[in-house]
């Protein structure tokens, strides 16, 4: 049984989330939002962290492909 690579899904979801949050953090953060989070632009920082996580998973999936060094059965016809 061969499944698609979960690492790419994680990279996709958090890449998307991260970019959205960074955009909100940079462009759409009101003073009220900042006050709520004690002056921290939490959207921006959380967004940056998610982009980093996404990049890490994408890099891992690229550098160590799922089935590169495997001696398992060949890909089944779908």
């Amino acid at each position: 049984m061969r499944l698609f690579d979960l690492r790419l899904i994680i990279a996709f979801l958090f890449g998307l989330y991260g970019v959205v949050l960074v955009v909100i953090g940079l462009g759409f953060t009101s003073d009220e939002d900042l006050k709520k989070a004690e002056g921290v632009n939490i959207n921006l920082w959380a967004g940056i962290a998610m982009v980093v996580l996404s990049a890490a998973f994408a890099a891992w999936a690229t550098l160590r492909p799922q089935f590169a060094d495997t001696d398992k059965e060949p890909l089944k016809e779908l």
Partner: peptide
Amino acid sequence: LSAAIYNEVLQFFVIVAALAPLTIVGLIK
């Protein structure tokens, strides 16, 4: 089970992404 397990892994990261900012802002406060 594969779908359940894959979603559980994804969920793990989403939960951390939800709780970590909450904890950090709370601690600053």
